[in-house]
Amino acid sequence: MTDRLSYLVKQVLKDAATAEELQELSDLLEADGDGTISRQIELLLRQDIGMDMPYDHRRWDNIASSILAADRPAPAPLVPIHGNGRWRLGVAACIALLLMSGGVWYMLQHKAAKPVANTAQRPTRQEDILPGADRATLTLADGTEISLDNAAHNTLAQQGNTTISKPGKGQLAYQSGSVLSHEIPQYNILRTPKGGQFQVQLPDGSKVWLNASSSLRYPVAFTGNSRTVELNGEAYFEIAPNATQPFMVKAAQTNVQVLGTQFNVMAYEDEASIKTTLLTGAVKVNDKRLYPGQGASIDRQNGTLSMQEHVNTEAVIAWKNGLLQLEGEDIHAVMRLITRWYDVSVTYNAPVNAHFRGIIPRNVPLSQVLKMLEMTGEVHFTVTDKRIIVSP
C-alpha cells in the first residue's frame, strides 16, 4: 500500500495522474477513517518526495488547475478525528488539497470548490506583492539609527565594552566584555517593519527571533539581579540559563518570568489578547506557572488571564520556521497575519464568515496565498496596489 500511495502522490504532484489514479487516491482519502492515509501522505511529502524543492508558481498553477477542473461532486466539510484534534479529508474531491506550495502540503478546512471565473482581480506577476524578508532597524542608546537590511556582515557599533555585529543575513549579535554592576544600563531597540523579520543574540547568549511589525528593547549588557527586555509585537525566545539572573519579558499587561527555556510571546496591539506559549522549560506569566505545551492568554480589555492546556506549539512558532499555519482562524485573524507580512491594507465590502486550516509558506507571492484561500469557495479578493478588498 505504501508503494502504491507513494506512486499516486508523485503522479499528482507531477501533474501526470490519470482520472482513474485521481479517483483511486480520492477513494483512499474518503475511506481514511482513522487518519492513517493522511499521515502516510504527510510522511511521504516530508521525507520521500522533497519538501525543500523551490517554489514554482507555474507548477503550482498547473497542479491546482488540473485537479480542480475535474468534474466531481462538491465535497462536504472536513471533520475532526476525535482524540487527536487532526482533520481528515472527507470526500473524494479533497484530492485537490494535495498541493505542493514551496514544498509544504496544504490542507483547507472547507470544501475544495472550483474557482469562480472573474471573481478576483489578481495582480500580474510583474505587479505581484512579494513576501517579507530580513529587514530591521537598530536604534542605539544615543539615538543613532542603523538600517540592517543591507548592512555589511561585520562590526556595526561599540557601546562601552559591548560589541555589536551582524554575523550573517538577518542576524544581529552582542558580545559583552567585562561589565561593572554599577554601570548605568544603555538600551538598544531592534525594530522590524511590516514585511520584516530579524534575529538577535543578546549579550547573555539568549536568542530572539522577531516577527514582522515588532520591536524589542534591551540593555547592551545585563547587570543587576535580572535580565529584562520589553516586547511589542511577536517574538520567539531561546533563553540562556542563569538561575542567579532570571530573564523577564515585559509585553503590555504581561510579565513573563524565565529561568532557561523556549517560548513564544505574541503581543500585537491589534490583537484582542496577549499570548504566551511554552515549548520547553518553565515560565511564569503574571505569576501563573506554565508547563511545556501550555499557553496563557491575557485579555487586553479586562486583563483576565486564561490558560490553554494543550497548545499546538508547531502552529504557534510556524512563522519562525517560514510558514503561515492556520488552525481554524477566521478571515479577520488570517488577514491580520497577511497585512503584517506582506505590508498591505485590508477592507471588507461585506461580512465574511470563513475559517481556515492549513499550511502556507511565507516565501510565496501574495497572489498565491489569496488563491489558496479562495479555494474554499467562501471568500474572494480584489487587489489594487497594496490594498486587498475582501468579499464573500
Rank of each mutant, 00 (worst) to 15 (best):
L5T: 00
D15A: 15
A19L: 13
L22K: 11
L22T: 08
S26Y: 03
A31C: 03
A31P: 00
T36C: 01
T36V: 08
R39S: 02
I41R: 06
L44K: 06
I49E: 11
M51N: 08
M53N: 11
D56S: 07
S66D: 14
I67C: 04
I67P: 06
A70K: 10
A70G: 00
R72V: 04
P73T: 06
A76T: 13
L78K: 10
R86M: 02
L89N: 07
V91T: 13
L98C: 03
L99Y: 02
M100A: 10
N118G: 09
Q121G: 12
P123S: 05
P123M: 07
Q126A: 15
D128P: 12
L130A: 15
G132W: 10
A133I: 02
G143K: 07
E145M: 13
E145W: 01
L148D: 03
H153M: 14
T155H: 04
A157H: 07
Q158N: 10
Q159N: 09
G160N: 03
N161G: 15
L172I: 04
Q175N: 12
S178Y: 06
Y187N: 04
T192R: 09
F198V: 04
Q199H: 07
V200A: 01
P203M: 12
V208M: 13
A212C: 03
A212S: 15
S213Y: 01
L216T: 04
F222M: 08
T223V: 14
R227N: 03
L231F: 09
L231I: 06
F237T: 11
A240S: 15
Q245H: 10
L259C: 03
G260P: 11
G260R: 12
T261H: 06
V265G: 08
A272S: 13
T276V: 12
T276S: 13
T277S: 15
L278Y: 02
L278V: 01
V283Q: 08
K284Y: 05
K284W: 03
V285T: 11
Y291T: 11
I298R: 06
I298Y: 01
Q301K: 14
N302A: 00
H310S: 11
V311G: 05
V311T: 09
N312Y: 01
W319K: 11
I331C: 05
I338G: 09
T339M: 02
V344I: 14
Y348K: 09
Y348R: 06
A350G: 04
A354C: 06
H355F: 05
R357T: 09
R357N: 07
R362H: 01
V364I: 15
V369P: 10
L370D: 05
K371H: 09
L373T: 05
L373K: 08
M375F: 01
G377V: 05
T384A: 11
T384H: 08
T384W: 00
K386G: 00
I388K: 02
I389H: 02
